[in-house]
């Protein structure tokens, strides 16, 4: 599904290399996790995959189902099936949450040559999905993420994911700032979306989330590289011993 090869990225404005050759492949239906110390480049990877400005790819490649992601505009990547749940969801005063989602959903459908969803069908769909994430009607009416608590913002990200039904979901620290109940809710939301044709790349600091969303593979990222990959037990090792041992071992 997602194939990243020797991806190298520097900041556009500064001469600072952040990704120093990331190689990773997430097959269809699989859940991979990326763990790693702060500043190792996890968010940068997610931004570069989704097409944010400010980064320059100096080498390597990233493909979604064989299509060169790096050539596409952010909206084309979304329409191709890529979704990023932001570490810091953006507040957009003046744009209603519903309007936002409907515009996004219909824009994606349109660009794929599908018919737009009617207002009634959309409403039905969003009510159903919002309910399972405990997002009430009032929250749907408010401006995107404005006045939302940290947990509400993260649930809102998952709601967007559920509505847009992407093929490749990248979750950037969706668990950070969540209490146990909120995390369960988010994990349930993610698990409900798991399917044969859908893959996940879950970026997290903590084993906690991975208790709920069982990964097939865990990667450790440090200083812009994947330094170790393994099974779910790798996450446990990090949880118990921190990163120091692993980093020493690969140094």
């Amino acid at each position: 599904m997602l194939k990243i090869e020797n991806l190298q990225v520097k900041l556009e404005e500064e001469d600072k290399q952040i990704l120093k050759g990331v190689t990773l492949e997430v097959p269809a239906g699989a859940v991979h996790a990326i763990m790693g110390p702060n500043g190792s480049g996890k968010s940068t990877l997610s931004y570069v995959l989704s097409g944010r400005d400010g980064y320059e790819v100096t080498g390597g490649a990233a493909e979604l189902e064989g299509e060169d992601l790096l050539e596409l505009e952010p909206e084309e990547r979304a329409a191709a099936g890529l979704f990023l749940a932001f570490q810091y969801p953006v507040e957009i005063p003046g744009v209603g949450n519903m309007t936002f989602l409907r515009t996004a959903l219909n824009a994606q459908r349109k660009s794929r040559g599908e018919e737009e969803l009617s207002a009634a069908d959309f409403l039905k769909l969003i009510r159903e999905k919002a309910k399972s994430l405990k997002i009430d009607a009032e929250m749907l009416k408010r401006s995107v993420n404005v006045g939302f608590s940290g947990g509400e913002k993260k649930r809102n990200e998952i709601l967007q994911m559920a509505m847009l039904e992407p093929k490749m979901c990248v979750l950037d620290e969706t668990d950070s700032g969540l209490d146990v109940d909120a995390m369960k809710l988010v994990a349930e939301g993610v698990n409900a979306l798991r399917s044969e044709g859908r893959s996940f790349l879950v970026i997290t600091h903590y084993q906690r989330l991975l208790d709920h969303i069982k990964p097939d593979v865990v990667h450790i990222m440090a200083d812009g590289r994947i330094v170790k990959s393994g099974g779910p037990e790798l996450a446990l090792e990090v949880e118990n011993n921190g990163y120091a041992d692993i980093l020493e071992e690969v140094a």
Binding site: E73, P74, E75, A79
Partner: peptide
């Protein structure tokens, strides 16, 4: 940031700019 957020959800650039202008 808002512009990128909208585009990352699939809203084309021009439409995203207009939406933010109306907002």
């Amino acid at each position: 940031d808002a512009l990128f957020y909208l585009r990352a959800r699939g809203v084309p650039l021009k439409q995203a700019q207009d939406l933010l202008t109306l907002a």
